[in-house]
Every structure is written in C-alpha cells, then in structure tokens.
Amino acid sequence: MTQDTIIRTQGATKIYNPTLPDEMVALDNVSVTIHQGQATVLKGPSGSGKTSLLSIIGCMSRPTAGKVIVKDRDVAKLPERYLTHIRRKIFGFIFQQFNLIRDISVQENVALPLYPADAGFAEIRKRVHTMLDSFGILSKRKLKVKKLSGGEQQRVAIARALINEPEIIIADEPTAHLDRELAADLLNILAGLVREGKTVIIATHDPLIFEHPFVDSTIAMRNGKIEPQPEEQ
C-alpha cells in the first residue's frame, strides 16, 4: 500500500438477495484505490454499481466477499457497531436527495451527527454556528428545513456532512437534483474541501463534475465492474 492510499478495495463483491431468484450482483470483484487528499470520481451509467461501491467504501454496508481497507484496517467483516463508529469519525456523506429531516430546524439537523459523540451542548452550538456561518445560512438556523430553498437545503446537507470534521467526504450524485448554477456552487465547495486536504469521493454521471479541473482521478464502472482507464496507471 502506497503512502497516500486511504481506501482500497480488493476483490470486493456485493450480491443482493443471494441465492434468491432475484439475486443481483451489484459489484463483481472490484479492486480500487482512493488516494488521500484527492478528488476521485466514480462514473458510469445508472445501475452500474456506483452507489453500491460508495456504500461499502463508506461503511454503510458490507461486501458479500472481498476486502475493504479503510486507513489500513479491513472493515469488511467488522460488526455493525464498529462501522457506525468509523462512519462517525471518518466520513461525511452528501446524499443525492439531501436526506435532511425536514420538520426540524436547520441547526438541529446539522447538530445531529454530534449527538452520539462526546461534545456538550455549548460546544455543539458553537460548532454548528461556525459551520452555518461559513455557508452563509446562520440567519436561517432556527427555520425548519422545509422552509428553505433548494440551494439552502443543499448547504445544510453539506454543513451536516462536515460538522464532525470528516477526513473523507462521500457524495452520491450530488448534482442530480440541482440546477446548473447550484451544481457549480457545490463543485466549488467540494474543490475547496480538496484544497483543505480532504479526500472527496463522488459518484456521478454528470459530465459537469468529471470534467471539472479539481477532479484528480476517475474510475469508470459498468455492470458492477471497473472499466480499464487509459489515464490510470
């Protein structure tokens, strides 16, 4: 493993509903390497296995077979409890459909990842305020999420992903529900995170993203497999 490798999969396979009639091989023997501090894009048509790969990389689920090595530790067979812990400590997620709790306030949404951690109320408030301020939505902190515009909701979602200061940010089709302008905003934010030294992994089939200059490497997927890429060594 090279010095700057942060995540590596080795022969990762994900089979949904194994042995059942609707068995589905979503990932077939996938080996990829994600480098620390880089922006990596997973591209491929819908159904090619991008979300499945992000899930096992982000410790949201476990591969049916193979290894998933996150920061030198194989997480493929870890019990659920440890996976939760890793998610909390290392990952921040930006989901395609924001996945905010729409009926509670902006600040509570952003604070939620900190609830199971050690932080006290005062510290949480401070961190949430700073974070919301940096996204220019501090004044909206008491509003319910459903009262916000799409762009504002997106910022709340990003703020929530970053509140626990993750090393790795995972974004699944983050621009799918955004207009071009908001998508550009988002890419600027992601580019900024990479500049700060964070590792960013994005699944998308939006050319706007994988043609963006901040993207360091692209992994193409098809039918649950990695397609050989000329520019990858």
Binding site: R81, R88, N99, I101, N164
Partner: peptide
C-alpha cells in the same frame, strides 16, 4: 424508517 436510516448514516448507533 428513512429517518432512522439517516441517523444511522450520520453516525448514530443502533443503541442510540
């Protein structure tokens, strides 16, 4: 169900 999933995704334990 979705909310429980969200909480888990952002680092809440089953016990939480």
């Amino acid at each position: 169900k979705n909310e429980i999933g969200i909480l888990k995704a952002i680092g809440w334990d089953t016990s939480d």
